[in-house]
Design a protein around this nucleic acid. Structure first.
Lengths: 180, 180
DNA sequence: GAATTATCTGAACGCACGTTCAAAAGTAAA
DNA sequence: TTTACTTTTGAACGTGCGTTCAGATAATTC
């Protein structure tokens, strides 16, 4: 059910996908879904929360490597992780307004934790002099927006491989934050 | 009617906003709207097309200035233009999937024209040696995603002014594409 | 194989949807 | 004031919505 809902929500949007449509995708009547979720809203929230939790569990831990290496790895991780889950990423960014206020706050808290991981790398780099960034919060948001944007246009089998694309983003990010 | 639809679509999403809700916002019955739009889908398309047309009309023309200046001005323009129209920007990015195939193609063509303007600046800069970018198309998409992301978090009256934010983006973009 | 538990069906609830249209109301020219 | 025209109303159309639930079916346990 969750896989079907993920696919359909990403395709048509939360509001435009009916419980009957999800049930049909599963091969079941609509009523049966309510054995697995209390309501449609909770189904959406669970999909988002799972995505964010997986993201936080998978993000590389900042060990004792130097800031340049950590940033390089973060960029590679973000692009690869998001590319592997286009539907979940799409939903997590587009359906926030369909969450209740309480559910929205919980998802936002998870997102902020993810952003904090990147900002920590940037702050350490600024502290060591490896990076020159006026405001690490802005740089964090700028980098994440840039990286997540890959999902909107990249298609496997196109002009460039994901590895080539990743290398170019790593290069641009490296230059954008480095000390002059 | 268009102003009301813009606001409501941005707030709740195209699918979740009824013609009756738009009519109520205008202070009229639903049937009256059909004197001004043939249907809801065309209303959405017209809003998007107007936005893209205004964007293309407002983008600074690339004169004979040097690439660094043109890029600097483009970044400033993009942030400022988008910040002034949060609802239209939101709709133009989020409601693409609610367009018919034909309407989608027309909006995408306009968006590509906008992207081409930035890519032209980058290509010229690479040609003169001012910029070092492996792939100007990727750099274009990366920069635009980064800049448009400002709309998702910036609020006037916060820690930083829009001018300060803009200056930092101009700085990051400048560094990201410059020759080593 | 009987009893128990888990799961699913199919119909029903009240409600809201986009759109249409005859009739009513409002506006402007003669 | 009459005429011609534009705009709005309010009801109606068929359809689909999220959710509930009694009863049918399937799976598991003894």
């Amino acid at each position: 059910m969750r896989a079907a809902a993920l696919r359909l929500f990403a395709q048509g949007g939360y509001a435009a996908v009916s419980m009957r449509a999800i049930a049909a995708e599963v091969g079941v009547q609509a009523g049966a879904l309510y054995n697995y979720t209390p309501d449609k809203q909770t189904l959406l929230f669970d999909l988002m929360e799972s995505h964010m939790t997986e993201l936080l569990a998978a993000v590389p831990q900042t060990g004792d490597a130097d800031p340049q290496t950590l940033l390089h790895d973060f960029v590679g991780f973000h692009i690869r992780f998001h590319h592997a889950r286009p539907d979940a990423v799409f939903i997590a960014y587009m359906e926030l307004r369909n969450l209740t206020e309480a559910n929205f706050a919980r998802i936002e808290a998870l997102r902020r934790r993810y952003e904090d991981g990147l900002e920590c790398i940037l702050r350490n780099g600024v502290a060591t002099g490896a990076f020159a960034v006026h405001d690490t919060k802005i740089a964090t948001l700028a980098i994440i927006a840039m990286l997540t944007g890959v999902n909107t246009w990249f298609r496997a089998g196109g002009r460039l491989s994901l590895d080539e694309v990743t290398a170019q983003y790593q290069n641009m990010v490296r230059k954008a934050v480095r000390a002059d």
